[in-house]
Amino acid sequence: MEYFHGAQLAHLYGWGGAPQCHCGICNGQHLARFSDSPDDVVAANRHNVATWLRWAEALQAARPGSERRRLWKDQCWEAVKARETISRQWRSAQSPTWPAALKVWATAAD
């Protein structure tokens, strides 16, 4: 649940070993492949939409109110746990700062 420029991901993963994405756009390609070329910008935007669309559809399918809030909280908590695992894989000595809202949403009282 974070946005990273392709070059930033490439740096974090030491220019190799970035995870694969299995969204409908990426089809298993690695996430650090995006550059500033016009074609890559279009592909990165399509990846972003495909990723968020999955979450939006799940949220819209949940009943409004506590069920939807709980689903969003759970999705944020999964992102927090994934970030902790992923940041250990980064070869960069300094991890980017966390999105402040992510932990707030993940730990918010219902």
Rank of each mutant, 00 (worst) to 15 (best):
W98S: 01
G17Y: 14
A93N: 05
S35I: 01
W77F: 14
K81L: 10
L59P: 08
E2A: 15
H30R: 15
S87P: 00
L102V: 08
A109E: 12
R68S: 08
L12K: 01
W77G: 08
P64Y: 10
Q94A: 09
A43H: 08
P19R: 06
A43K: 13
L53Q: 13
A62N: 10
D74R: 06
R33Q: 14
R46I: 05
N45W: 06
S92M: 02
V41F: 01
W55K: 14
V104W: 03
H30L: 10
A7H: 14
Q8C: 14
C26R: 01
Q94N: 11
D36Q: 12
W105D: 10
A50E: 01
E78I: 00
Q94E: 15
E2Q: 14
L53G: 07
R91N: 01
P19K: 07
G14A: 07
L31C: 10
C21R: 06
C23L: 05
A50Y: 03
P96G: 04
G28S: 10
R88L: 07
A109Q: 13
R54K: 12
F34N: 03
L12W: 01
A7L: 15
E84Q: 12
R33F: 03
K103A: 09
W98E: 10
I86N: 04
A106M: 05
A79G: 09
W77H: 13
V42S: 13
A101I: 07
D39S: 14
C76S: 14
P96K: 06
R88M: 04
T107R: 13
S92H: 10
V80F: 00
C23E: 04
A108T: 04
A79D: 04
